[in-house]
Design a protein around this nucleic acid. Structure first.
Lengths: 222, 222
DNA sequence: TCTACTTTGTACCAACCGGTTAATTTCGTC
DNA sequence: GACGAAATTAACCGGTTGGTACAAAGTAGA
């Protein structure tokens, strides 16, 4: 009984940033999968390369952890978006590309979508507390505003085209495509979620959004 | 110690249907507000006019209750939809009205939307178990199919117009408008959710959906 | 070397919470 | 009006779970 339980403490390095990152990554999966109340701290701790104690050491409590996860998710996604370069394209092409990119981008980040769903269940209470997120998002429609300005100046877009509304439409279709896939496909089948189905949806999203932005007499009739 | 704790049992009536209904109504609010894992059975029981034991008596366990709530929510909403009468309208008008109705209908039933969000968080696992729901929904696109058939026959709609896809677009915009209101408005403000904002969104939803259904040469240029 | 920060491990707790036991009342019906 | 099934009540239980206490040791920079 006196055989020491192995001094597993020997040989570890300090890496606060790494530990935090590791915890956040695991917690993001768990919260995205099970929601705020559904996620289990013990479960998160177990999947971490560190211990439960460290979670509380760095994030205080469960809600604190959730808040940081939410921030991290927004940061990742918005950072990815910023890589899109549109200024060199004519307005219509830029708008098309932005819509297509958003559709694909959301599709590639289902965990982010799920976290936003969860946050909406909580009426955005945690998002409210984060200035960072609001900053990140404020920049999210700047691209769209630039496109609209150029489109109007070129006489292509409606005078009353509203960047925020375009963003809403693009977001809605791109978001719904991920958020409601489970129920929609269980009820109506998978056709819309096959590669061809997705291609069609994306194509029509672009068609509709561009149609909404363009002046009526500028709409080509394919 | 022998003073009976008040015979509060005296004077109650048997009313199974009423009790079930009462429980379901309360549970729907609680689940919609807090999710499956977030809702508390004790809390539901307290807000009920009956006791916790009756919940288990009628619904087995928490998941059973949730499943019944989900079914009831679908039943209520789909029943409301069926009152819409479209056969007497020309196809384009019928499509417009259906889209507008759906937008308003979703807006009027936020609890239903929230339950569907929650169900999607659970990957539609409980919806899967309900034949009733699938039956109810199967009928949901019949209206749209009828409209499309008439529209095609009249030479107004594209030959390849897809009722299911139209349903997807209408649902997406109408659903997102409720489901993501919290996060969207906290980030971008309330403009789109004011009465005028909502009117505009609805109008443009109709414009886009009709535009998608119509043959290009049938699109009037307003 | 001093000191603050970081990491590990284990054991523990009190509240919460889903679910149960068991007894009692109502009510149709034979 | 007795009987059994259905309906209802109140008290109770035990596992789960977020969170802590405590002790100790390794690390890094000053």
């Amino acid at each position: 009984m006196n055989d020491k339980p192995a001094n597993s403490r020997a040989g570890w390095k300090q890496d606060p940033a790494g530990v935090r990152k590791n915890i956040l990554a695991v917690a993001m999966e768990e919260f995205a999968a099970n929601g705020l109340s559904g996620a289990r701290i013990d479960e998160i701790a177990a999947k971490t390369s560190t211990s439960k104690r460290m979670i509380y050491y760095y994030f205080g409590d469960k809600e604190g952890l959730y808040g940081h996860v939410l921030e991290e998710a927004y940061r990742q996604v918005r950072t990815g978006e910023q890589e899109l370069e549109l200024d060199h394209l004519p307005p219509v092409e830029a708008l098309k590309l932005l819509a297509e990119f958003t559709f694909d981008h959301h599709s590639r980040h289902p965990d982010f979508i799920r976290l936003v769903m969860i946050e909406n269940i909580h009426d955005g209470a945690y998002l409210e507390q984060s200035e960072l997120i609001r900053l990140l998002n404020a920049g999210a429609i700047q691209k769209l505003e630039a496109i609209c300005r150029r489109g109007r100046d070129a006489g292509l877009f409606r005078d009353d085209v509203a960047p925020l509304e375009l963003h809403w439409h693009i977001s809605a279709l791109s978001f719904f495509n991920v958020s409601n896939r489970a129920t929609f496909s269980r009820i109506f089948g998978n056709t819309l979620f096959s590669p061809e189905g997705q291609r069609t949806l994306k194509e029509h999203l672009v068609e509709m959004v561009v149609g909404l932005a363009l002046k009526p007499d500028r709409r080509s009739r394919r």
